[in-house]
Design a protein around this nucleic acid. Sequence first.
DNA 1: TGCGAGCCTG
DNA 2: CAGGCTCGCA
Length: 144
Amino acid sequence: MFFYARYPSSNTLKTYFPDVKFNRCVTSQMIKWFSNFREFFYIQMERFARQAVPRGAHPVDSQLRVGRDTELYRILNMHYNKSNVYQVPERFIEVSEVALREFYSAIWTGRDSDPCWKKGIYKIICKLDSPVPDTFRLPGCPMG
DNA sequence: TGCGAGCCTG
DNA sequence: CAGGCTCGCA
């Protein structure tokens, strides 16, 4: 599901897990999961962005892409799609590239010296959530 | 006072 | 991932 929605609201989560009885604890746990998912996502983006900086990569360089043949893609897929039962949507790759380039740009221009430099990137990425396919509403359907 | 977000730890 | 802790908002 993270492939579609990086910032699902608690209400969104409830509609996609009909077989789950939500209470405060369960809801906060799921919110927490996505918080952890985002952390991993952004950590990888920053890592690869920083890795590209010393190589003088331009935004169009292969170093700043997240194609299905890249190491970054492999890491993300392994983390969010362990069983590899889902096909990674193209939009997730596009969003990942946006994030990667935003991180690169911020680092390249020295904006990362600001303690809150990631906030701006988060604000951009949170607007790029896609609707989650209805197939994820099926009872027993794993998080994905 | 309670909850969500974010950071960071194990 | 889960726990713990801080912050800002209501």
